[in-house]
Nucleic acid binder design. Structure first.
Lengths: 192, 192
DNA sequence: CGATTTTTTGAATCATATCAACGTACGTGG
DNA sequence: CCACGTACGTTGATATGATTCAAAAAATCG
């Protein structure tokens, strides 16, 4: 069911049922199995992915081979390697399903066509990226300004579902700390 | 002279001289003196500011009273408190001129009007925020994944002008480290 | 020039990483 | 459906990088 996706668009722009139906024709619908890889480092990213059901995440690998989780996308989130997608350069992240998932995808080839057929998609994406940018800035501000324990508490508050559905070592990686440190933080918090 | 701003638009969208002229009529042009404040924490942010000449920066103040530099905007950059601007909520940053500057500003009241008169502005902003989002993500990835010294080296490489024009304690604040640590990092680097 | 701001230096302390070991849970093939 | 292997989480000891506080040196401003 694409009800969630329709609501998602309607929260930002005016779109009729017919327009939405037409738009859906330009998207791809896919079921992905847990652990399935939707993008591999080095490939050019051809999709922006909307998560209708399930949970995907992306991670980069640094020069020392350390993985670093960049983004978790659960229901109603988008995920992609935007830089690779827009600039047609090799992706710097893997995107992998953490759970069996149901996704809708925009293919790069169709983007420009879409912006012509549906001018309102510009408005939609402008608003989407405004929000994404603001959120990234907030995370950055926190990453630099507050301690690991406070960052964990923030995430507990803001995205509680994440903690329930994601293994702790991935949360640690997302927070930029080691699993050991996260374990110790959690012990401290329980004691309180 | 608004030549730089015209180029700035033309790098993203098609815009005729007349359209640009009309667009300019919807913007405000201002000279600001060094140390002048363009936005104060608590106010609602009414502008997105384009830096034509000079250098502005924004910083937040955390619960412990520590200032944290969020953004440096030199020539051809934009600066604002986007969350405050879009949601009409109190700003969380001050915006201050670090040098005498020359800026063009979009006022909030006129934004919706502008999106109607100039539909291509949606496209422009979409692309602007795509880029801003990507950059913020990169910074975040670095903030969490690499050490202070590597972050400083990165900024040296990517925005060398910044180091030349901005006091080091503000660079330190931007990197999320203390001025003392930055001083020690620089000593190490010189020794190499 | 004097006053203020900026940068540097040193010593003690704190937060987090690292390395190593162990316990637990989990799913997968037999 | 059980047992084994792998993935996940915790704990301890030690090392490292960054902060804090105090002070002095250097640069900049009016």
């Amino acid at each position: 069911m694409s009800q969630r996706l329709l609501e998602h668009f309607r929260s930002r722009i005016k779109i009729s049922d017919e327009e939405f139906s037409l738009l859906l024709d330009h998207m791809e619908h896919k079921q992905v199995k847990k652990k399935e890889k939707l993008l591999e480092i080095g490939e050019v990213c051809n999709y922006t992915i909307y998560v209708n059901e399930g949970l995907l995440y992306s991670y980069s690998v640094d020069d020392d081979g350390n993985e670093h989780v960049v983004h978790f996308a659960l229901e109603d989130y988008w995920i992609s390697d935007l830089y690779s997608f827009l600039n047609r350069t090799p992706a710097t992240v893997d995107i992998i399903a953490l759970e069996d998932s149901d996704v809708y995808m925009f293919r790069y080839d169709k983007m420009n066509e879409m912006f012509e057929i549906f001018p309102f998609i510009n408005t939609f994406y402008r608003q989407l990226y405004e929000k994404a940018y603001i959120y990234a800035q907030q995370l950055l501000d926190r990453a630099l300004g507050i301690s690991a324990i406070e960052r964990y508490v923030q995430i507990l508050k803001e995205r509680p579902h994440l903690i329930q559905r994601v293994p702790l070592h991935l949360i640690a990686s997302y927070l930029g700390i080691t699993p050991e440190t996260l374990s110790r933080i959690r012990r401290k918090l329980v004691k309180r």
